[in-house]
Design a protein around this nucleic acid. Structure first.
Lengths: 156, 156
DNA sequence: CCCATAAGTTTATTTTCTGGACTGACCATG
DNA sequence: CATGGTCAGTCCAGAAAATAAACTTATGGG
C-alpha cells in the first residue's frame, strides 16, 4: 500500500491518518491549538525546512482543517486558522498530550496544564461514552462492522 | 529540528509523536486494538513492505507500547501484544476514528461501530473533563505552562 | 526432496527532507 | 532613493529515509 492510497481505505483511521498522520502535521496542529497562525511562526517554532511547512499547510487547507485568511493588504498576508473541522481535532490532540504527559513527563511533571474554563479546574481528558456518559476503557469496547464496511473482514 | 530530536522537546505532543506519529505506526496500533498480533498478519493487512513492519514493531516494543511474547517453540515464534502503556493509547485511536467517522464516512456511514459493553450501546468517544465530568470542547480550554515547562514561551 | 509457514534481513531503488539561496511585495530609516 | 528588514513563500542539489522484492533461517508435512 502506498501512502496516497490510504485515503481510499474503508477505515476511518486510515482516512484520518492520510491527512494528519505525519509528524510535522501533528506538530503544526499542536501549534494551531496554541494560537499560532503565521507561516513564519510555524517555521520558526518547528525549526524545519520551509518547504515542509508550506506543503503541510497546503494539505491542511485543501482538506479543510485550516483556512487561509487574509489579515492585511499591501502586501497581501495570510494566516492559517483552524476551521470547525480542525477544531474537531481537539480531542485527538488532547488525547495525545495526555498520553505523553502520562508516559514521558518524568519527575518534572507535564510541560503544559489545561484548565477547563467551565468548571475552573485543571484537567486531563477522559474518554467518555456518548450513550451513557461513563468513562470508557479499552477492554470495555467491542468493535464490529458498520454500514460503511466493505466486507465483514475489512479493516476498520 | 530532526525527527530524532523530537523526543527531547519539552512537549508531550512532540514526545508522543516521536513514538506514534507515523502513518504506519498508527495503522499497526489500529490493528493491535482489533486483535492482530502476528508479524505476517500486520504485513498482509497493511500491504506494506516487511522492512517497515519490522522497524515499527521494533520501535513500539522498545518504547514499551507492545510486548513481544513467544507463543510456540521450535521454531520459536513471537506475537506482539499491547502493554498497559499501549492500551493507554485507546483514547488516541478512538479520537482519530471518531474524527474520520465524522468527516470522511460519506453516505455509507462509518466502517466500524463500537459498542460500550458496560451500557450495551453503540457509542462514539466524548472528551470529558477529569475534574467535573462534563464534555469539553476546544474553546473551553485554557493552556498554560506546567511544572515540566522549560520557559514560559516553550512549546507544549 | 520439495513445498509451505513464520519472522525477519539484505539490497537496490525511489521518494522525501534538508539547508540555503532566491523572489517579490512592501515598509521604515536616513 | 539606496539599505535593510519582514513576510510568505519557491527552487535546487545533496543527504537521509522509505520502500519493494528477493533472500535467509528454522521447522513441519507429504
Amino acid at each position: 500500500m502506498k501512502w496516497n492510497e490510504l485515503a481510499q481505505e474503508p477505515c476511518s483511521i486510515a482516512r484520518s491518518v492520510a491527512v494528519i498522520g505525519d509528524r510535522w502535521t501533528l506538530l503544526i496542529l499542536r501549534d494551531c491549538f496554541l494560537g499560532i497562525r503565521r507561516f513564519e511562526a510555524f517555521q520558526a517554532r518547528l525549526g524545519i525546512s520551509r518547504t515542509i511547512v508550506a506543503d503541510r499547510l497546503k494539505l491542511l487547507v485543501e482538506e479543510g482543517v485550516l483556512r487561509r485568511a487574509p489579515y492585511q493588504d499591501s502586501p497581501a498576508r495570510h494566516e492559517y486558522r483552524l476551521t470547525e473541522k480542525g477544531l474537531d481535532l481537539h480531542p485527538v490532540v488532547m488525547a495525545i498530550v495526555h498520553w505523553g504527559d502520562r508516559h514521558y513527563s518524568g519527575e518534572a511533571g507535564p510541560p503544559l496544564l489545561h484548565r477547563h474554563k467551565a468548571c475552573g479546574h485543571d484537567f486531563h481528558p477522559v474518554q467518555a461514552c456518548s450513550a451513557c456518559g461513563e468513562a470508557v476503557e479499552a477492554r470495555a469496547v467491542e468493535t464490529r462492522a458498520g454500514p460503511g464496511a466493505v466486507s465483514p473482514s475489512a479493516a476498520g
